[in-house]
Amino acid sequence: MTEPRNPSMSSIPQTGPAHTDSSSPAVEMDPVEYTLRKRLPRKLPKRRNDVYVNMKTDFRAQLARCQKLLEGGGHREICVHGLGLAINRAINIALQLQASSQGALQLAANTSTVELVDDLEPEDPDEAGEPMTRTRNNSAIHIKVFYPDPQ
């Protein structure tokens, strides 16, 4: 997965009020209108056996990718990561892998919280407003799929 992860997969608001493109009066940042711009989640260095799951690529393709890594790629273990909306899919992939291996594979899941950054650009007529940056958290899952050691 060379492509950066799609921001829309992290777009489910886990915390805080609803954010729409032009903030509604319910949100505290009135009277100035802001445009919301989400930054990409922070990328971390990636090993060959890391698979970041997204919602854009076809499910079967991602599954096949993992299978190839485990069977053809010679990796004893791979790590499937999912963020936000993609958590569901990451779990699905891991379970599918396990089911298709007839119990040879084992899973170990970890969850974590990822900090995401939003930029709020003011759209006020007198342009005195400072752009704001806010952080919010989103859940992530990291599933280790591995062949248990023979002993």
Binding site: P4, R39, L40, R42, K43, P45, V117, D119, P131, T133
Partner: peptide, 9 residues
């Protein structure tokens, strides 16, 4: 920093 896009534009 891992990616240039992480900085404010």
């Amino acid at each position: 920093i891992y990616s240039t896009a992480e900085l404010p534009s």
